[in-house]
């Protein structure tokens, strides 16, 4: 119960550290990688951990640590951009629907609710089947898939705020829709919107790595962590770390974000002193 960082629960603090770590790796990973990209460093494929290759080697004898550090950019970066797009569009539409109400709200909600009932991986598969899986296409697909979820969450939050008297006061004053959205509603839902961003980021990471694992996501020569699991799946029979390590990397990232988000949401709930 002291001030500052010690007020974070241990699980939340751990989540924060993990998230910061992977964000740094996405930014600086290639600079820190012990071996040049693609450089085959060992004749030994599916090697176990060694001093030269702390996470073993892959199916071509490349250093797994290097591969994972370089892959961080694709897993973290692509997902972050896609989630950011989804949240931005979803939040804007939701604020608009909640503030204007009436037909705008009814039509938007109906359409986006239909989209939400498409299971995400399924929808992604259909799109990939049709337009392929270039990185911009993957970003766009993931963003489109998660707009309805972001919309639904933010709309539910915003509708509660719109019903509050201070919004009525602003309306009666003659304020325009844009002012209501920006100044009256948004500041009161920032934290839950960020929480929702975190959750959605996890879904996007799982979706994109799932696609890559199926061989339908990010294509060579680029490789995210899901692709790394796929290309090394043969190593499973030998118990090679090359299969497990990239999958574990994904797990640490998503668990880290989830712990952080859980902690933030919990603090919001516990902050009410009455």
């Amino acid at each position: 119960m002291n001030a500052g960082i010690t007020r974070l629960r241990p699980a939340t603090a751990a989540g924060l550290l993990i998230v910061l770590f992977w964000a740094a790796m996405a930014a600086f990973g290639p600079l820190l990688a012990p071996h040049a990209d693609g450089g085959v460093m060992s004749a030994q494929v599916f090697d176990a951990a060694s001093r030269a290759a702390p996470l073993g080697t892959d199916y071509l004898g490349r250093d797994m640590l290097t591969r994972i550090l370089i892959g961080a950019r694709y897993t973290v970066g692509v997902a972050a951009v896609a989630t950011g797009l989804a949240s931005l569009v979803g939040t804007t539409l939701a604020l608009c629907a909640a503030t204007v109400g009436g037909w705008t709200d009814a039509v938007l909600s109906r359409l986006l609710d239909a989209l939400i009932s498409l299971p995400s991986l399924l929808f992604a598969l259909v799109v990939v089947a049709s337009v392929g899986s270039s990185i911009p296409m993957l970003v766009a697909t993931a963003a489109v898939i998660y707009v309805p979820g972001a919309y639904r969450t933010v709309r539910a939050l915003a509708v509660n705020i719109v019903a509050m008297e201070f919004v009525k006061v602003a309306r009666a004053r003659g304020e325009g829709t844009l002012y209501l959205m920006r100044a009256e509603i948004l500041p009161n839902i920032v934290l839950p919107v960020l929480t929702d961003f975190g959750l959605r980021f996890i879904y996007v990471v799982l979706l994109l790595s799932g696609l890559s694992f199926l061989g339908l996501g990010i294509q060579p020569p680029y490789a995210d962590w899901g692709s790394l699991v796929r290309e090394n799946i043969e190593g499973l029979a030998y118990g090679a770390p090359a299969v497990i390590m990239p999958a574990l990397a994904i797990a640490t990232l998503t668990i880290g974000v989830n712990l952080l988000v859980d902690g933030l949401a919990g603090r919001r709930g516990g902050g009410d002193g009455r």
Binding site: A11, I202, L206, S209, G210, F213, G226, V229, I233, L236, A237, Y238, G239, V243, I244, A247, L248, I250, A251, T254, I255, V257, N258, L259, D262
Partner: peptide, 27 residues
């Protein structure tokens, strides 16, 4: 239960599957 379920929903299915294969089939 909270931490375990949070972790479980965050983990990709292929990690669970590969770990299961590694332990129960390979080892």
């Amino acid at each position: 239960v909270g931490v375990l379920t949070v972790s479980a929903v965050s983990v990709p299915e292929f990690l669970v599957a590969t770990l299961a294969v590694l332990v129960f089939a390979v080892r």
